[in-house]
């Protein structure tokens, strides 16, 4: 759980472009409204806002490596299981507005799923990571998607990231994996990226894209809220998706079975 000490310049002026043309996020540039607001410095509390990113995926697909490559520009070949969750904050400067990304790097191990799941709530971005060399990790992506959405009733941005691209032997293999991945991405409405934490290939681009989209969305939301506030000072609590009780299947079952089941899943 290192906290990045170095305040590096992560300046975003141009809107980062997607990896593949096919993506659920059609943004190719900042919304004119967002751009205007940023230039006029009327973004309100966006600077203080933190966008929460959770990184999920199977054991040892390279979640921690991906985050470390981005945050610390290092790559550690030794495998060290993440316990519970690791936490990083990356500071961006988007269109001159400071913007923080809170990166929650969760443990892939089954026994920590309970703890990790505690951090899923309220995520703005879900990054589902799979290993390009292990097809079953891609198969599990859908399960990770569902699990992460259980705690999030409002729609987070979903990214599907294939790691260890450098280990793929041929271009054909990459293409094959990417085709399969695009299929899954289409299904879960995610944007797909192939990266290599070892070489750093696409890592920076991926996170910049992520930051760009999140920033765009969050400023847009802040502006909408501002408008809504000025229009009518009342905000119905029920309308806010945040204020809904999230119901897990266990809760609905209720009763005595509830505790045993939980205990089972955490072991």
């Amino acid at each position: 759980m290192r906290i990045s000490q170095v305040a590096r310049d992560r300046n975003l002026i141009k809107f980062p472009q997607p990896y593949k043309e096919e993506t659920p996020y059609k943004e190719r540039d900042f919304e004119p409204k967002v751009r205007d607001a940023c230039l006029a410095n009327k973004t309100g509390t966006v600077g203080l806002q933190v966008s929460k990113v959770i990184v999920v995926g199977d054991v040892s697909v390279g979640k921690t490596c991906l985050v470390n490559r981005f945050c610390h520009e290092v790559f550690d070949r030794d495998y060290k299981a993440t316990i519970g969750v690791d936490f990083e904050v990356e500071r961006f400067d988007v269109l001159g507005i400071p913007f923080n990304l809170q990166l929650w790097d969760t443990a892939g191990q089954e026994r920590f799923k309970c703890i990790a799941a505690a951090y899923y709530r309220g995520a703005h971005v879900v990054v589902i990571v799979f290993d390009m060399r292990e097809s079953y990790t891609l198969d599990h992506a859908k399960r990770w998607y569902q699990e992460s959405l259980l705690e999030n009733s409002h729609d987070p941005h979903i990214f599907l990231v294939g790691t260890k691209r450098d280990l793929c032997e041929s271009h054909e293999e990459v293409q094959k994996v990417e085709e399969a991945a695009m299929e899954v991405a289409r299904e879960i409405k995610a944007e797909y990226w192939s990266v290599s934490s070892l070489s750093g290939q696409n890592v920076e681009e991926f996170f910049n894209r992520l930051a760009g989209i999140t920033f765009n969305a969050s400023v847009l939301k802040a502006l909408d809220d501002l408008e809504a506030k000025s229009a009518s000072r009342q905000i119905a609590i029920a309308q806010s998706s945040e204020n809904r009780i999230k119901l897990t299947p266990d809760d609905i079952d209720g009763g005595p079975g509830y505790k045993n089941k939980k205990a089972g899943c955490c072991n």
Binding site: G84, A107, C114, I115, A117, C266
Partner: peptide, 27 residues
């Protein structure tokens, strides 16, 4: 870094056997 990270890991480890509410309270 030397002290807190292992402490947090220790807490996570010991909390991993609890149900969500207990775990949250304990954490």
């Amino acid at each position: 870094g030397c002290v807190l990270d292992p402490l947090l890991q220790m807490c996570s480890l010991s909390a991993s056997k609890l149900n969500p509410s207990d775990m949250a309270a304990y954490m």
